[in-house]
Amino acid sequence: MRHLIDILDLTCEEIDELLDTADSIIENPAAYATRCAGKKLATLFFEPSTRTRLSFEAAMYELGGHVIGFSDAANSSSSKGESVSDTVRVVGSYADIIAMRHFKEGAPMVAAMKSTVPIINAGDGGHNHPTQTLTDLLTIRREKGRLDNLTVGFCGDLKFGRTVHSLISALSRYEGIRFVLVSPKELQVPDYIKDLLTEKELSFIETTDLESTLPEMDILYMTRVQKERFFNEEDYLRLRDSYILTPEKMRLAKQTLSVLHPLPRVNEISVEVDDDPRACYFRQAKNGKFVRMALICKLLEV
């Protein structure tokens, strides 16, 4: 039995297979419509995340399966003090697979140690969110036709953005990836990510300037710069605006650029960019459902 706790639990070959399955689902959804008939997915959301939960639930319904679960710890047994281990042991006797989101980092790993059914980490605190990374990888491969030999820009909060860390780790396993890390000094990627890139002898630059580096990028991964990350309002306002993607900045970019964003966005991509064919973030959100369908099929071995 397999779980998905960390994106690096999967080999590059397994990721390729999952993305192939997702492509095949997109092409011919009818072929998968009863693949999980009679199976139940439990969505255990100890921390609310409507977007991720709906994506999992839609994925299971489109595979012909059923969904049980809760969307908020206040309504769950954990509010009565039940441990993660006990919860998954009980839920595992009702469901065939579990998608878990938890505010405690490492909770899905603990769940996997005790569970009798596959566990999917649907986000644990600021730690991992592997199905978001699969979504990002599927989007890059569908937009670009490959996962290697790309210049990938990351912009915004690179310090606390777990989706950024996971995607960098995942992409660091492919040939010819160049990273351009654009952020305010206060929000640069943590040292362990830089250590990883240095250790693997990967090319990366750190910069505070989006405009001058945008023209080289094949991919631009935008993230939110959150107000609560700053000590004062002044810094926040000053920095926020230099990391907003606008139609003017898009003029500097390649015609083949793909702009990704894990969503939800606040104002870091202005809405006028949405109509630009290079804006991929809504296609990306849709891809999330397909890659979760592929993952559920793989882990259920159906």
Partner: peptide, 21 residues
């Protein structure tokens, strides 16, 4: 020491650390 770590709340877990570097 991470206050958000599952080991701060889940009973019965071994505290395991791996050498990273």
């Amino acid at each position: 020491k991470n206050p958000r770590c599952i080991t701060t709340v889940e009973p019965g877990l071994h505290h395991i650390f791996k050498l990273a570097n």
